[in-house]
């Protein structure tokens, strides 16, 4: 089996009848961290949503291959169960469902195996300590009344617990202060190993100060216009996206 985890081929995607992605190609191998950068409206969030087949977006051309299988037309939950995770820019609030119960339920759906409650709670507690989260949040309703930072950390917690093969982090760093970004970076490092991969989607470069990445792609107007290494991010930090428009 090849080391290739995700292959996006000539992906075109519409949102509300308007073409947002205009032919994206992307290859992610196990063990790699990729970053897609780009100005607002370039199609970053659309890319993440298209991989998980959000029905609000329509693929008009191209394929998404995950672990050797075409997942372009699978339902979101089927894709999730294959091992794709997405951290949301604006996580939804679910009143009346505690973080613990939600994650226990989701973990059971993802793994197809019963979750051992005590072991699970210990694991949860451990991750929450590492992420500097208030342990009381375990029993609070999912994301309800959480601050922006707490919501983002909660997404990272979910990533650690659900342990996907590919984690897509959509603007997880945006709106966070330096300390919170460091914690998110720490979470990514805890998660990352040779058998999984991370795709970070961001419009700024702050997170790259505390995290080493393998590839940086610049997305402008629905196309990847340049691919490079961490150096490329530095260049964009200094010069912005103007030269790519």
């Amino acid at each position: 089996m090849s080391n290739n985890l995700l292959e996006i081929k000539n992906l075109h995607v519409n949102a509300e009848e308007k073409e947002i992605l205009k032919g994206i190609n992307l290859n992610i191998n196990n063990g790699e961290i990729h970053v897609i950068m780009g100005p607002n409206g370039s199609g970053k969030t659309t890319t993440a949503n298209a991989i998980l087949n959000n029905p609000a977006y329509t693929k008009t051309n191209g394929n998404i291959i995950f672990n050797g299988e075409d997942i372009s037309n699978l339902k979101t939950d089927e894709i999730a169960r294959k091992g794709v995770f997405m951290s949301f820019q604006l996580p939804e609030e679910i009143p009346g469902v505690s973080v613990t119960n939600f994650l226990k339920y989701a973990k059971n759906k993802i793994t197809g195996e019963p979750v051992k409650i005590f072991q699970f709670k210990d694991e949860l507690k451990k991750y929450m300590e590492e992420l500097n989260m208030n342990p009381k949040n375990m029993e609070r309703s999912l994301n309800v009344g959480f601050s922006g930072g707490e919501k983002k950390k909660n997404e990272i917690l979910q990533m650690l617990v659900l342990n996907p093969k590919l984690a897509i982090l959509d603007e997880t760093d945006s709106g966070l202060d330096v300390d919170a970004i460091k914690i998110v970076s720490k979470g990514i490092e805890m998660f990352k190993n040779e058998n999984n991969a991370v795709l970070i989607i961001t419009h700024n470069t702050k997170i790259l100060h505390s995290l080493k990445v393998d590839y940086v792609h610049v997305l402008v107007n629905g196309k990847i216009v340049k691919t490079g290494t961490q150096e490329l991010a530095k260049e964009i930090e200094e010069n912005g996206y103007a030269q790519y428009k």
Binding site: P55, T76, D77, I94, V97, K109, I110
Partner: peptide, 20 residues
């Protein structure tokens, strides 16, 4: 969509929201 991205089917997602 948020709940389905965590592996819940549409039915499971709706049931979870209603139970909550």
């Amino acid at each position: 969509f948020y709940l389905m991205s965590r592996g819940l089917s549409e039915e499971d997602a709706k049931a979870m929201i209603v139970r909550g």
